[in-house]
Amino acid sequence: MSESKSEWPLFEVFIRAHSGLDHKHVGSIHAVDTRMAIEHARDVYTRRQEGVSIWVVRSSDIVASDPAEADALFEPAKDKIYRHPTFYAIPDEVKNL
């Protein structure tokens, strides 16, 4: 193959399925710039009206937490069950609580 080795950058694609819903990650796409990324995302991810809005962001701009640090990050929330309403015992005769 005789082409240059410069691969088009990778973008992550987020789609809002209906107004009122959050944008949700659906996959990725290669494009030369953000405009082309949106056009390609339209063709690849919304051929059946799956969306009303698209976000694209360069994959290299995403900063992710490290799975190896998952315990350190998320463990502290585990023993704080008093943050959930079911932690509190309220007699049945009390209504609307």
Binding site: M1, S2, E3, S4, W8, V32, D33
Partner: peptide, 20 residues
């Protein structure tokens, strides 16, 4: 298809570079 599309891929990249 890959070879004949080569100039399109390169031109799109060059254009995006220029815009930037």
């Amino acid at each position: 298809a890959w070879e004949e599309g080569g100039w399109v891929r390169d031109a799109a990249m060059a254009h995006a570079e220029k815009q930037r």
